[in-house]
Design a protein around this nucleic acid. Sequence first.
RNA 1: GUGGAUGUGGUGAAGCGGUUAACACACCGGAUUGUGGCUCCGGCAUGCGUGGGUUCGAGUCCCAUCAUCCACCCCA
Length: 425
Amino acid sequence: MLIKRPKGTQDIIPGTIEKWHFLEEQIRKICQEYGYQEIRTPVFEATELFQRGVGETTDIVNKEMYTFLDKGQRSITLRPEGTASICRAYVENKLYAQTLPVKLYYLGPMFRYENTQAGRYRQFHQFGIEVLGVENPLVDAEVIQLLWDFLQRLGLQGLEVHINSVGCSHCRAVHREKLQTFLEDRKDKLCSDCQSRLERNPLRILDCKNKNCQALTVEAPTTLDTLCPDCQEHWESVQHYLKMGDISFKINPKLVRGLDYYQKTAFEVMAKGIGAQSAICGGGRYDGLVEEIGGPSTPGIGFAVGLERILAAMQSQKIEIECTDKTSVMVAVLGDKARQVGFQLANQLRQRGIIAFMDLMGRSLKSQMKYADRVGSRYVLILGEEELEKGIIIVRDMKLGDQKEIAKADLIEFIQNIDSSEFEI
RNA sequence: GUGGAUGUGGUGAAGCGGUUAACACACCGGAUUGUGGCUCCGGCAUGCGUGGGUUCGAGUCCCAUCAUCCACCCCA
């Protein structure tokens, strides 16, 4: 093997692609039901978009971006997530001039330069939704509701929805100070990562995985402790609506998303069965992001789910994705003349919307039968010299193991109206 | 970026210094003239990730390198 696929990428081949089709169908269906419209943005953007949008202090921007210079010396980055691009598109296409809210969904590949492991890839796929223009906490609940609904429809069990409020920029500033004061005394005991976080982004210390740091932050002030009256009201309202929606959620005051743009509501969904990874979805509110990108002050909220992780969770829970094979017709021929007639026949069948194909390998009749069996064709049309002379075609039902002679002139109609009872003795 | 495991045909895998690299599945072909699923027979690795080295001799030992998987960090 001379050339292999790049690390962390995947070929989705027949046998697996059906699962993706199924997921994609479910996504489109539920989004339509909730009144969301699809948006497609480029898979690469100006690097600056993510630096500003996702945030300079994040891991994504610091170490995970696929960045390169194009031939015009522009710094380009393969999108590591969807929200920044969508806010950019919202501003660039002046969607804010349309009836609000703007409710969008997207589906496609994202890129992050990381070392791979179970449930983690360099090219992976996300489905996400974004609602722009709504401050009302009702939308926070609706977004989580859609998410929950989606996951339930897939049949996933044992999921945990964690939610938190990280407050607005005002309460964040208050919290930041309190937290820094609190941690200042214990600075020496923090891990080296957290020591540098203390200055740049102390909030992230709260969800450090280091056991030491976790112990140190047990008593630390959380964002929930320092919410301003507005944020507090919003937070309570979100919970109220969620309870109405019959969603079981856990309040996790230590939940801090890895992206800088989140404000107020933040949430994650955890699942088992995807290796050391557990998050299958993350989301939250990003009220300042559109403005940051140069648009009008616009509230926003959304989430993104990892499709590979959804599929992994489904597989570990043994949730079968049904792939119904459509009935197909295989045209088996014997001899050159028959092949030509068969070629036309297959064409005619396809014109009527029937799945029909021939052997392309020049196989013997026996092998053609075998092939039809392998690929699961329900019917085989057998056409040889004899049949040509008599002006008939043999129609064999592979499932019942019966066959019938049909006049060539009647064949198309016969296949179209086929009913397996025709073959029963 | 760091650590661990593994690398033999399409797949799963034997082989653990010595003639032509087991076996199973898959695939292809055949078992009297034109018919699948069962059975039987036959075919299918000039090579054991790659490059060095040790040795009379290496898939089998040593070194390097690459790749894959898993884990840390973080996230989808």
